[in-house]
Design a binder for these strands. Structure first.
Lengths: 338, 338
DNA sequence: ATGAAAGCGCTAACAA
DNA sequence: TTGTTAGCGCTTTCAT
């Protein structure tokens, strides 16, 4: 392989096929008017030369790209992966690709990332979360393309929103435990200043506990988000030592909840008989493990599906009216809670 | 927000700052020679206009992009996510971004994806696996940029390789069980014609069993890859019914192994006392669950780290010599096997 | 159904 | 240190 030789251009293909570059361009654009034989000849010539269209040049000239920029906190998270998967599927019929970036749960990193992504001139942006730096907001507002914030219900949206209230969802969980006469409830989450959705869940926990007149001080901050299974297990060990009379634990995600469950199992503490455990996110591990883990399903793929749908509508209509679609997370009662 | 107004260009910034477009260009290029005051004036003008560099035009003119294309089978997989994470970190110092695509464990999809990615003229390609369609091979060979195949040891590499033998790794696992006097060993994997690494692991299983003179017919094909925890659990139920005297099960990944473990727990079958279970990949769930799951660690982030290193070296030297670096997967003995 | 001319926004190359 | 000119590879627009 000669890495130094330049890639062939449309002109090279045109010469080889005995046509003008313009005809080659048409031959590569589906649904355009080229003689079938000419088109076949052109494709043969292209294949022989190893020609691949240069979308850099194509995008520059036509002033439009064929992709949508998407930001998620972490590439390694089944929930966000499901959202991205559904988004990808929903945009495929329109020929739109996903350009994916991750913020590592950090709004500063998000700012850098979004600027990088905007340089590539996406047709739209789908971001996770509704909290951004001031500059990120300005970048998004100046982008002149539709923006969708997801997985959250920001009080002052940049543009469109498809999400839910993380705080509200956890309040439902607290209500459930209180109904079951459990009152000494703890919350295991991450450090509060990075993962804004985790922070909202923690806020929802505190609000609900106070509404019920209960002690909302059993709060474990298990480290920088995302909280892993291991950190969930460590947090549970800590909780069992410092507050052994705890009756129920709500974890910021199913992953930490599974860690907490495993810690109980290693110490011979029966779940749910001695302590109830709940998570968040409806990850597969919580559905399969024994006992299965009570959780909240925020419908990640539904978020992606509806974001794609909304985008298609907005791109077609050119409308400027911000749309907010609320997702309704479902409480899934499983074996880990009485 | 006015989505119809065009984005400002470098010329707009130049006029506002009272300089030529070329000076604006320089002001945005780190380490180039512009008067500090001029640069400050330009950045202020840019910020005020909401200017964001157009990398489409920049790339076209300079004939170089600032990204590396990476393909992985699935976005939702902690192993590949770790590889991508390490790759991202390793390329950041050089200012290279990752352009990520996923193949859904399908070589046809890989072909479409790689053509899409090549249109954007990446500086290099990092692909997962060493099996491709004939056309994919041609595309990669004609790309005129370095290519790294990972997670595999292809017999005829396209270019560079950083990987390991999936078959060999599983053989080590079989040897371990045989040493422990377990002979009735089963393998749970996916359908054989999509995930080539899963197929290699299955091949390794069969080869090792035959080498030991053992029956290699306890093979469960649990569906199209990737095999989920749920599918692992279902496969285990099937295995317990059809071959109840099985002494050990090797699963194509820790996720299916965890499903198999859960199935045993639901049926009151003691692991490892009644049956040993092993997985592959060293996923977090297998380290945390009770009992923890014996596995093989293929060092996903090591693969990413070394791919980034190799890329930097090759991009600097411009060398054409294909390099093959072998990773040595480690057997991790845990509680799920005797 | 095909071609010719022009130019998208930026930067390499050269000039001052 | 800054400016001028030209052109990257493609597609829009207009012409035939």
């Amino acid at each position: 392989m000669d890495k130094l030789r330049k890639n062939p251009t449309m002109t090279d293909v045109a010469i080889k096929a005995g046509v003008s570059p313009m005809t080659v361009s048409r031959a590569f654009k589906p649904g355009s008017l080229v003689n079938d034989q000419t088109r076949a000849r052109i494709h043969a010539a292209a294949e022989e030369l190893g020609y691949v269209l240069d979308s850099t040049a194509s995008s520059l000239r036509s002033q439009k790209t064929d992709f949508v920029a998407v930001t998620i906190p972490s590439i390694n998270n089944a929930n966000f992966a499901d959202t991205v998967g559904a988004l990808t599927e929903g945009l495929k019929p329109r020929g739109l690709q996903i350009l994916l970036g991750y913020t590592n749960y950090d709004v500063e990193e998000e700012e850098r990332l979004i600027e990088q992504l905007l340089r590539r001139r996406p047709q739209a942006l789908v971001v996770t979360g509704g909290q951004h730096t001031a500059r990120t907001r300005r970048l998004l507002e100046n982008a002149h393309v539709p923006v969708i914030e997801t997985w959250d219900l920001p009080s002052t949206p940049v543009d469109h929103v498809i999400g839910f209230s993380n705080a509200q969802a956890v309040q439902v969980m607290v209500d459930h435990f209180v109904e079951k006469r459990l009152t000494r409830i703890a919350f295991i989450g991450g450090d509060v200043d990075r993962d804004t959705r985790g922070l909202d869940r923690r806020r929802g926990f505190i609000a609900a506990m106070q509404r019920h007149g209960l002690d909302a001080t059993r709060l474990i901050a298990a480290g920088p988000p995302p909280i892993s299974m291991r950190e969930g297990a460590e947090a549970m060990v800590h909780l069992l030592e410092t507050a052994p009379d705890t009756e129920a634990v709500i974890c910021v995600s199913d992953l930490s909840a599974f860690g907490a469950l495993s810690a109980c199992q290693r110490r011979g503490i029966a779940v749910p008989d001695q302590i109830s455990i709940a998570g968040f996110g409806n990850y597969e591990v919580g559905a399969i493990c024994v006992p299965s883990i009570t959780t909240i399903d925020p419908s990640p793929s539904e978020i992606g599906r509806r974001a794609a749908e909304l985008l298609c509508r907005v791109l077609d209509s050119g409308s400027n009216l911000p749309i907010c679609e609320e997702i309704d997370p479902r409480l899934l009662l499983r074996e880990s809670s009485i």
